[in-house]
Design a protein around this nucleic acid. Structure first.
Length: 201
DNA sequence: TGGCAGATTTTA
DNA sequence: AAAATCTGCCAA
């Protein structure tokens, strides 16, 4: 079930919480994979020095200024990509970073995609399901998300957000965001309490 | 124009 | 702990 356009248009802190429990789906020729969102972070256009939009638009962060409900995918540290759901008003530059998933469909394909170049000696994956998508770079690899989907509408693309069929009652915890050095005072990270698929720290 | 920090992950 | 390696910002 696809959420209405309305779903994406509220305050970004709210969307970050509402995305918890939703399904992130990617359909490719390799197959369909999906995961339940268990950890998110909000990035705001006002008073948020950690937000990519804070210093204005560049070629890299352009998609972040697009319509709510589209994707913002960017290269980080020259080698990984992070996936965001664009939020806020068009032109503002707000987004929700998806940090971790509970893998639901296509676990084998995820394992194959996560396979590293140099197998570690003696101890190569398969990963535990908990280690498959427990980080923003990891889930992008596991789902096969590429920059080609940057700016795409997440309601009608093969990369999309769906409402999960089952509803679990999980309480949401809040903390400062991970991996940043500015804006640590802002409690804009949201995750399901005691959920084993959430990223570390 | 060069150096470096950065919403990360893997390997030693 | 340190590498891998791209982008944008600022003068360390």
């Amino acid at each position: 079930m696809i959420p209405s356009p309305r779903f994406f248009t509220g305050p970004t802190e709210k969307l970050a919480q509402n995305l918890l429990g939703m399904l992130l789906v990617h359909e490719t020729s390799e197959g369909r994979v999906s995961g339940r969102i268990v950890e998110t972070e909000a990035y705001l256009f006002r008073n948020d020095p950690a937000c990519h939009a804070h210093r204005g638009m560049t070629k890299r962060n352009e998609a972040m200024f697009g319509r709510a409900g589209t994707s913002y995918i960017y290269l980080i540290y020259g080698m990984y990509h992070c996936f965001n759901v664009v939020s806020g008003k068009t032109g503002e530059g707000e987004a929700v970073l998806i940090r971790a998933l509970e893998p639901i469909e296509g676990l084998d394909l995820m394992q194959a995609r996560r396979r590293t170049k140099r197998p570690l000696q003696g101890k190569q994956p398969p990963y535990t399901p908990q280690a498959l998508c427990n980080g923003p770079g990891k889930l992008v690899i596991a789902l096969g998300i590429t920059p080609e989907s940057n700016g795409a509408c997440l309601r009608e693309s093969r990369l999309r957000i769906e409402k999960s069929g089952v509803r679990r009652n999980e309480s949401i915890d809040q903390s400062s965001r991970i991996g940043i050095t500015k804006g640590l005072d802002l409690p804009l990270r949201f995750y399901f309490r005691n959920n084993p698929f959430v990223s570390k720290r």
